[in-house]
């Protein structure tokens, strides 16, 4: 066993002093995100058909379906629904994206979501159509 001594780490300390810093000057210097990064959810209102699958699979109860009108199927009036996302409770699992059969949902690379207003995190994009 090597001799015990104080300051065994000093050579390494000098070596690291000459190295580049390990930290980055965020937010001036942005980090490069990997291709699979899961950030804020986004919806393409054109593609969404209101099938409700995303609301059923979401583990965090982010998605509520809102009636935006009715449509006629045969002789029955059926409500037309669109999802509203309460992104403040989203856990970024991506389950809704995987399950949407119409590829309407996607996870963007946006991660700077801090905001003083909670309403900013409610996504009503799909309702506007």
């Amino acid at each position: 066993m090597p001799r015990r001594r104080a300051g065994a780490a000093i050579p390494e300390m000098f070596r690291t002093m000459l190295e580049k810093p390990s930290t980055r000057a965020y937010p001036y210097q942005k980090v490069e995100l990997p291709a699979r990064f899961r950030g804020k959810l986004d919806i393409d209102p054109e593609r969404c058909t209101g099938c409700q699958v995303c609301a059923m699979v979401c583990p965090a109860g982010v998605i509520t379906m809102i009636d935006i009108g009715t449509r006629k199927v045969g002789d029955k009036e059926l409500p037309v629904k669109r999802p509203v996302f309460e992104l403040s409770t989203c856990i970024f699992c991506g389950e809704c994206v995987d399950n949407c059969a119409f590829k309407a949902l996607e996870m963007t690379k946006q991660f700077e979501l801090a905001t003083p207003h909670k309403e900013d995190l409610t996504m009503r994009k799909a309702l506007t159509k």
Partner: peptide
Amino acid sequence: EAISGNRIHKSMNAFCGVRRDMP
């Protein structure tokens, strides 16, 4: 993060398999 898309909560598991392949 490169494999799963998140640093801590990987959300990789599904019943009888994994959700994402290795890149």
